[in-house]
Design a protein around this nucleic acid. Structure first.
Lengths: 208, 208
DNA sequence: GAAAACATACCGACCAGTTGGTATTGTCGT
DNA sequence: ACGACAATACCAACTGGTCGGTATGTTTTC
């Protein structure tokens, strides 16, 4: 058994948790299992985290930061027109679906389903994660709406619809064992936006 | 301790499971807990179900039947125009959101997130449940599309988008601790359909 | 040498599942 | 109509193992 270099235990535990929680869920992932996957002992676990729930919170917060940094640094942000930027973001989300299913599974979405009543701290972290994820596209949407207002539509509300499509898509993809429904959800979302903003685009048939 | 009448143990266990799984998830709900909630002993549990996983499958199948019968029997099916029927269905789904959060939580959506890799039998049952839920509205959508075809849109694909909106809405509602995002998702879905079918309706602002 | 970062050994509670048994119900020959 | 018998429905106690968590080391870093 190779030893984990000193100072890496915490990061490795969170990485192991990200992987295991996406596959089996939060409750079904045990602390022992986490330690084994991270190559770390239980003493290290409870040195860094006061409880399993504390790890859950840290995991979701790390998820928020990691995905946030990833979206913020992505070249799609350079697209000049705000609405085109939104479409580029949808393309980016589509491309994420090319990875295996457990890898595009959302940590926040998965954990909040199990813990929204039993672990309020995790619920709060997940709520912030989902809100933060919507914030990226919300900024582009706000600019697009400023240039082309749509009656009764706010950037906030539309940004939430992005999260709805992504989260709902993941659930249907898991049920089907196939990313196709998730991709389809993004296709419909794009079509909805093109109708709202009166901006016809390249033909992309949502139906398979 | 009042005894459960003979012959009711199975039904009571499924009812207890529906309640507990919606609140805490599948993995976090123990067999002991289930038996206590149903007022039944462990012997009864394993008399009716070969394993905890077998109960999970039965729970999801029961969910499919119960919700299916509920939607099939509902008066919204009497609305003459197929597209109006679709909008009436959306209204029905909106009204379901008036119950407390754990009660409008979807059993199939919750369990599939936790078990799609660890319990294939439950995953299959959940996939069927979601497909069956879409089937109701798919029939109306097919008729609406027959009368008013939309290029690149199939009834199947659109029916799946209903499930996406519902499932995604539940996740955001759980994160927020508030049904508002789920309602909003249905508002956007309705607006999308009205744009697709060129059928403007009563103004309903999705933004809060 | 003190504090942080681990490791080891262990605890009581709880886990899914099994056991051997009993009460109730249906069935069938007479 | 009735007793023999079997199947079903259920129960209470228990099993080996796992759970989250703790107490107490040992090693490394500053």
């Amino acid at each position: 058994m190779t030893r984990v270099p000193r100072g890496e235990a915490r990061a490795r535990l969170i990485a192991a948790a990200r992987d295991l929680v996406r596959r089996k869920g939060y409750a079904a992932t045990s602390v022992d299992e986490l330690c084994a996957a991270a190559g770390v002992t239980k003493g290290a676990f409870f040195h860094h985290f006061a409880s399993k729930e504390a790890l859950g919170v840290a995991l979701v917060q790390d998820w928020t930061e990691t995905t946030g940094a990833m979206f913020a640094a992505h070249p799609y942000n350079q697209v000049p027109d705000p609405l085109d930027r939104v479409f580029a973001y949808i393309d980016l989300r589509r491309s994420l679906l090319d990875t295996p299913l457990p890898e595009f599974s959302c940590v926040a979405g998965t954990t909040v389903q199990e813990t929204y009543l039993t672990a309020p701290a995790i619920r709060r972290a997940a709520a912030e994660s989902i809100a933060s994820g919507g914030e990226h596209v919300r900024a582009h949407l706000a600019q697009a709406l400023a240039a082309h207002p749509v009656a009764g539509i706010s950037a906030d509300s539309l940004a939430r619809q992005f999260q709805i499509a992504v989260q709902g898509g993941i659930i249907l993809a898991k049920a089907a064992g196939d990313p196709a429904p998730a991709r389809e959800a993004l296709d419909h979302l794009e079509r909805y936006l093109r109708l709202l903003f009166d901006r016809p685009g390249p033909v992309r048939a949502p139906a398979r």
